[in-house]
């Protein structure tokens, strides 16, 4: 035993140390590496003109959201539709990198805890909603994009109020499954987040319907192309978490009730 220890002791100890180190790295979500990465690739300050461009884009986005709101208000029977959570100024963040593993659709952005980003913060880009923050370090954070196959967003069709759940397909498109057996949806319809979504505020523009398959099983499906050009994004804006996350279960039920009520009429 002593001989064995004399011969392999150092190797065993080193191996255990290496594995423990790797394990703690895993548990910290790669915090150190992302911190170094953000320090290495962070541009020096934010150029002013860029910010202004982004604010212009944001203004256009807000006016689109306002139009959406007006239509929403006109439908009094859906009074439970909440206004989008536009409180507070967004934080602009440069995109530093992409996902570290191609099975996931993520962004690495150059703002972190010090700038007030927290896990669950909503991320938008010119074009609308693109995802939410899933992990933060001091000066960088990771964003899970809506195009990831693990992303779920409750959506509705602006024109007809048909609701469903949107999932990513791993590229520029996403797929919606509708709650309704016969949803009123056609190619070209605009899709926004709905109050059913408890991770995202309602009414945020997402994309446009590009194909519809009403006979799909188990629920009618549609393919949506996202407004935001995820491939070429260089800057994104970060918003606070939605204020009141309703119970997902309850809202799902109430959603179904509303839909069946409509059907009866």
């Amino acid at each position: 035993m002593r001989q064995w220890w004399g011969r392999y002791g150092v190797t065993t100890g080193l191996s255990i140390a290496v594995i423990l180190g790797a394990w703690s790295f895993r548990e910290s979500n790669g915090r150190i590496a992302y911190e170094i990465y953000s320090q290495v690739s962070q541009p020096f300050g934010i150029p002013e003109d860029r910010s202004r461009q982004l604010l212009d884009a944001r203004t256009q986005e807000l006016s689109a959201m306002l139009a959406e709101q007006k239509q929403e208000n006109s439908r009094l029977q859906e009074a439970i539709d909440l206004a989008p959570d536009g409180a507070g100024e967004p934080i602009f963040a440069p995109v530093l990198g992409r996902s570290a593993d191609h099975w996931w659709q993520q962004l690495t952005i150059g703002r972190g805890e010090v700038d007030g980003v927290e896990v669950g913060s909503i991320v938008t880009a010119p074009g609308g909603l693109i995802g939410r923050v899933i992990s933060v370090s001091d000066t960088s954070s990771r964003v899970l994009l809506v195009s990831d196959s693990t992303s779920r967003v409750g959506i509705k069709v602006t024109r007809s109020r048909s609701t469903g759940v949107m999932r990513g397909l791993g590229d520029e498109t996403t797929s919606i499954e509708f709650f309704d057996k016969l949803p009123d949806v056609k190619v070209g319809d605009t899709v926004v987040s709905s109050q059913f979504s408890y991770r995202f505020p309602s009414g945020m523009p997402i994309g446009k319907v590009t194909s519809v398959d009403l006979s799909a099983s188990p629920a009618p499906r549609a393919v949506v192309t996202l407004f935001a050009p995820l491939d070429i994004l260089e800057w994104v804006s970060i918003h606070g978490k939605p204020d009141i996350p309703p119970e997902p279960q309850e809202s799902a039920e109430s959603e179904v009730e509303i839909l069946t009520d409509e059907d009866d009429e």
Binding site: S15, V18, I19, G21, A22, W23, F25, R26, E27, S28, N29, G30, A33, Y34, S99, A100, D101, W103, W104, Q106
Partner: peptide, 17 residues
Amino acid sequence: ALAGWTLGLLQDGMSEQ
């Protein structure tokens, strides 16, 4: 095997677990 396992854990840390 040790290197594979260790770097796999590191990659988990960088993306999803």
